[in-house]
Write a protein that binds this DNA or RNA. Structure first.
Length: 782
DNA sequence: TGGAATGATGTTTTT
DNA sequence: CATCATTCCA
């Protein structure tokens, strides 16, 4: 097997390990995917049946790519038969097969985070609990945490520690919410993400024949990103592996960044207890990055106390130091990064796909988007509100869901009156009460011919049944028609498409296009399934299973040559020649939520480690001294992580940024700053005043030759963050435009700064009173 | 009942 | 500032 020659010694040793438990601790960039890939190829080369290999990856995309690579080595035919995917998708598939064991339909719905939150909200309301105390989001995370530790509602209520925690937090009734949540999910034949792991555990626990079946089926188990598995995942793997102990886990404790969703580094330590005679392989040679980057990353992670000793090194060149850039505002940061990329692209012909901009939170992407667009640089944002989160997409998918599983209450509520069918709030309220009293799904109330809902009048009931009749007609086709065919039919006959078609606003057209795109997606899905297996008749509910578990990272990158923008979490496993890590500020990165405990801070540090090690050639860090957050300007301090990098690998491109605290200057400075913040400014926002002060005090370190005037000299957008002196002050008599009302004239200005109110006369729309801090008024020079 | 307008509220990361 | 939720009016 020639491909083994492409591996170094440690890699080859790991890849050719066949039987018995093994763990690979793989430093960043040490070729662990390659090891996994070749090990699978090696196993198959030695006669192992692909069907008996289970490989669990972190994203579906990782699975797909790995399959492709294996296919190249040993042939596609074999590769496609390997069981490979994320925990959630693989076990969702198995649950589908075995659903009736736990009294679920095989067409069960997978509730996404939003569905499950809205259900929880509903329950909290129904129990007359104060949703200020019982915040749906935190109740949800409490329940999720329990499920990840295999604690069901009954167990939750009995658990003394949990109960005292909840009592202490003033929320003793979470157990009750959980109990209702459990039964409502079941009633709706729905599972949330955590259930996919939870119920899989139930299957293996309560049905020995199934345990045996899958133990026997999966003779070789492989788990990637093992450091990010939680207890529920750990236990599934352990049980599946119990028969043969052919288990291979691969991970890097230094890259564990999913503690917030229950990931448990302890699983790595547990491994030693469960398989005392396991073989440990360490991959320590980094092939990805320059010495400067590897050493810088090492020096950062050394600040963590909790880690498995390892020495990541590289024989790559020394490379450039890590650049630190300071900026006055977040927008300036955006412009600077864009300009740098522009330069490198045009002066050194660096392709766009070599660049990545990584940030801590999705909200940070905006400033970069704007700047990149101004310079005409192509980019692609990964994550954020993905395609499948859009309202119109969720609407159509809700129809699909309802057709696959009519008891899906969340889907029912979503579309029963969209497009409008005269089924209003009061009707729905009655229906919901009825369903709650009888503890059956909304659908079952409507369909109950024998016992018509008492509270519902004749007309509303008829409308509900008309709706149900339509869904039923679709249902009849579910197993008869191919997914794409039925999807199209539903889109048309539900009235959704025509509803959107009527809307000719730009957003309406975009929504319509999105629906088309979803339908294309269903079609692509069907065709692909037919390609793999001409006999297969993929149904709409197969499609739903796929869609529910898609990740942002799973989108196809057919538009190749673009700058990548994403959160650091989303960047895990990826690499880029030139990486910009932005927003390196205290309270942002590390996040203020993570400042509470040492453990949280260490996780943030690992996140920073992940960010640094994405870079192959250059890495630049930047921070801003003021930033927009919660709609207002806040001042920020550089991240402590910057100081944690060994000085030898760092370069401050902007002398002012050198070492501590740009704002250090004692209390008097502090006060001055506060005064600035309180000072009124013409546009009702203190940012411009601050911005101008800053720019004047310190001339720009580097000129931005490529910035263009986006205004053409005519329009001047009142952008408090423009920071380039173009801020226009509005006064009575000025002519302005407004997004919705069009052109108008300012009649009166009153009130003091952040609350300046303008009275504007719009010939088209009449006289309006507008608060400047909200209304986007653009002055037109005449 | 439906829609628009106003007001409150909130932001970490994701399967 | 953006989304959501509630409220108010037709």
């Amino acid at each position: 097997m020639e491909f083994l020659n492409e591996l170094n010694e440690a890699q080859r040793a790991a890849a050719t390990h066949v039987d018995g438990p093994m763990m690979v601790i793989a430093g960043a960039g040490s070729g662990k995917t390659r090891v996994l890939t070749y090990r699978i190829a090696y196993l198959i080369g030695r006669g192992v049946d692909p069907f008996s290999i289970l490989a669990l990856t972190f994203t579906n995309k990782a699975a797909r790519e790995m399959k492709e690579r294996i296919g190249k080595v040993i042939g596609d035919g074999e590769a496609k038969n390997i069981w490979m995917g994320t925990f959630h998708s693989v076990f969702a598939r198995i649950l589908r097969t075995e659903a009736e064991r736990i009294n679920y339909t095989r067409n069960f719905t997978i509730y996404d985070t939003a569905d499950s939150r809205s259900l929880i909200k509903d329950i909290i309301k129904g129990l007359n609990l104060d949703d200020k105390v019982y915040k749906p989001a935190s109740v949800q995370s409490r329940i999720s945490g329990a499920k990840n530790n295999l604690i069901d509602a009954a167990g939750y209520a009995e658990h003394p520690e949990i109960q005292s925690e909840d009592a202490q937090a003033g929320r003793p009734h979470i157990a009750t919410v959980y109990k209702h949540y459990e039964s409502r999910c079941f009633r709706a034949q729905a599972m949330d993400f955590d259930d996919l792991l939870f119920k899989m555990n139930i299957l293996l626990r309560d049905f020995p024949d199934l345990l045996y079946k899958y133990q026997t089926k999966f003779q070789y188990l492989m788990v990637d990103e093992y450091q990010d598995t939680n207890f529920a995942q750990y236990l599934i793997i352990k049980q599946l592996a119990a028969q043969r102990e052919n288990i291979c886990v691969v991970g890097d404790d230094a890259q564990s960044i999913y503690g917030f969703r229950g990931a448990n580094i302890e699983n790595i330590l547990n491994f030693k207890h469960d398989y005392p005679d396991f073989t440990l392989y360490k991959l320590e040679q980094n092939y990805r990055s320059t010495q400067a980057i590897v050493e810088a990353a090492n020096s950062v992670i050394a600040h963590n106390t909790n880690q498995i000793p390892k020495a990541v090194w590289t024989s790559n060149g020394e490379g450039k130091r890590i650049q630190i850039n300071r900026h006055y505002t977040d927008n300036e940061e955006g412009r600077h990064v864009a300009t740098r990329i522009f330069d490198m692209h045009h002066q050194h012909q660096v392709p766009f796909s070599d660049f990545a901009i990584l940030y801590r939170t999705n909200a940070q992407s905006r400033a970069f988007e704007e700047s990149l667009r101004k310079l005409n640089l192509p980019y692609r944002i990964y994550g954020g509100t993905s395609f499948y989160q859009r309202k119109e997409i969720k609407d159509l998918i809700a129809y699909f869901r309802l057709v696959a599983n009519p008891r899906d209450d969340e889907a029912f509520k979503r579309v029963v009156n969209y497009p409008a069918r005269g089924i209003g709030k009061s009707t729905m309220d009655k229906l919901i009460v009825e369903a709650a009293e009888r503890n059956i799904a909304l659908w079952d109330v409507v369909m109950d011919e024998a016992m018509p809902p008492t509270a519902l009048g004749g007309a509303p009931l008829r409308k509900l049944r008309d709706f149900a009749g339509m869904i039923r007609r679709f249902m009849a086709e579910l197993d008869r028609k191919a997914a794409d065919e039925l999807a199209l039919e539903i889109a048309k006959h539900s009235g959704l498409v025509s509803e959107l078609y009527r809307d000719k606003t730009p957003e309406g057209v975009a929504r319509y296009d999105n629906i088309q795109e979803l339908l294309n997606g269903v079609q692509a899905f069907s065709e692909q399934a037919r390609e793999t297996d001409p006999e297969a008749r993929p149904t709409l509910s197969d499609f739903l299973l796929d869609v529910a578990l898609l990740t942002d990272a799973d989108q196809d990158d057919d538009d190749l040559n673009k700058i990548a923008m994403m959160t650091i979490h989303a960047a895990k496993g990826l690499e880029f020649k030139h990486v910009h890590i932005v927003g390196m500020e205290e309270n942002l990165f590390p996040s203020q939520m993570a400042m509470q405990s040492r453990a949280d801070l260490e996780e943030e540090r690992r996140l920073f480690y992940v960010a640094l090690t994405r870079a192959e050639e250059t890495c630049a860090l930047s921070f801003a001294q003021t930033r927009y957050r919660f709609g207002q300007v806040i001042t920020a301090e550089p991240s402590r992580f910057i100081d944690e990098i060994d000085e030898r690998y760092v370069e401050y491109s902007n002398a002012k940024a050198a070492r501590p605290t740009p704002f250090a200057g004692g209390p008097s400075f502090d006060q001055a700053r506060k005064q600035w913040k309180q000072m009124p400014s013409a546009d009702g926002n203190n940012a411009s005043a601050f911005g101008r002060l800053a720019e004047k005090a310190a001339p720009k370190a580097d000129p931005k030759p490529f910035r263009r005037s986006s205004t053409g000299g005519k329009l001047q957008r009142v952008d408090p963050n423009a920071g380039d002196g173009s801020v226009t002050e509005l006064a009575e008599g000025h002519v302005v435009t407004h997004e919705r009302f069009g052109r108008g004239k300012i009649v009166k200005l009153e009130g003091t700064a952040p609350n300046t109110k303008a009275t504007v006369f719009f010939p088209e729309a009449g006289t309006k009173q507008l608060l400047l801090k909200f209304a986007k008024l653009t002055r037109i020079d005449e």
